[in-house]
């Protein structure tokens, strides 16, 4: 009885302790976004006079000033959106197709190709960046263009692997067999039977692909040179290298908020799927 009581107490104490730590961690995670939001609403003068936790009223004014400035912010947004959305379409569609090829068919080279794709998952894109830049320079339609950035994502081993894992648990081969008996050709089976069944996995990978490409900086910065082609991360880097103190700080914060908050908003709506998607991808042996 005595023993049981102390044990109960200790669980209670441990629970309280974990809540305290969890709340602290939560504050640590959200603090930066809160400060960013507050500062984006304050004018340069207010920002210079010190920090407060209360939002001000200059958000729209900062935004107007930013748009009137030298950074092509709207075209940056447009480019980021075009590239990220195209990458989602290409990457998700063709990764599912690749996974389907490995999952549904038995062919001679399969024994070789599957481990090969898993092995190339480890190659960092930075390592091939030099060759990539040389390729882009050599082909005129690739120069200063989003095309090579989008086309690369057709071969996305990580997305492929996720799709393959998901297919193993949800796509019975008998279903494909049945479609064949009904006279559906292979391409149509893939488009009208396999793809709809893969919707949950496609949604998860679409989000991840979007976010990765939205945030991507290293390779796009090497490829996209002209003002009207650049994406938001490149503009952020330009903002950083511009003479900092001459700048209106309110604009700087609005620019950062503008790059971060779209993803935060998407995340707020889809967090359930994203968090469980991470866990799903993790159960790999």
């Amino acid at each position: 009885m005595e023993n049981k009581k102390t044990k109960g107490m200790s669980v209670h104490a441990r629970r309280t302790f974990s809540y305290i730590i969890l709340v602290l961690v939560t504050i640590l995670c959200l603090f930066w976004f809160y400060v960013l939001f507050i500062n984006a609403t304050r004018s340069n003068g207010e920002l210079q006079s010190g920090f407060t936790f209360i939002p001000s009223t200059h958000l729209l004014e900062n935004w107007k000033n930013l748009r009137a400035g030298t950074l092509p912010i709207l075209s940056g947004l447009k480019n980021s959106l075009i590239i990220s959305c195209s990458c989602v379409l290409f990457s998700v569609y063709f990764s599912t197709m690749t996974a389907y090829a490995i999952h549904a068919y038995d062919f001679k080279l399969k024994k070789f190709i599957y481990p090969f794709i898993l092995a190339i998952m480890m190659i960092p894109t930075q390592v091939t960046a030099l060759g990539f830049v040389k390729l882009v320079d050599a082909v005129s339609i690739f120069r200063d263009s989003p095309v090579p950035l989008i086309a690369t994502t057709i071969a996305a081993p990580v997305t492929f692997f996720y799709m393959k894992q998901y297919m193993e648990s949800t796509l019975p081969l008998s279903l494909i067999e049945a479609a064949r008996i009904d006279g559906s050709n292979e391409f149509r089976t893939f488009n009208s039977i396999v793809l709809p069944l893969m919707k949950p996995a496609i949604a998860v990978q679409a989000i991840f692909t979007f976010v990765n490409n939205w945030n991507n900086y290293f390779v796009p910065a090497l490829v996209l040179k002209s003002d009207d082609k650049q994406t938001l991360p490149i503009l952020i880097a330009r903002l950083r290298s511009a003479d900092f103190l001459k700048f209106d700080m309110g604009q700087v914060y609005v620019m950062i908020a503008f790059s971060i908050f779209p993803v935060v908003i998407i995340y707020l709506f889809l967090s359930k799927y994203i968090v469980s998607g991470v866990a799903l991808g993790a159960v790999k042996e």
């Binding site: 961690v25 995670c29 900086y217 880097a237 950062i256 790059s259 993803v263």
Partner: peptide, 17 residues
């Protein structure tokens, strides 16, 4: 949900912040 959020943030924007 909260602790996963920073993973999705643009690293360059976060760094600028």
């Amino acid at each position: 949900t909260v602790i996963y959020l920073p993973n999705l943030i643009m690293a360059s924007a976060f760094s600028m912040l």
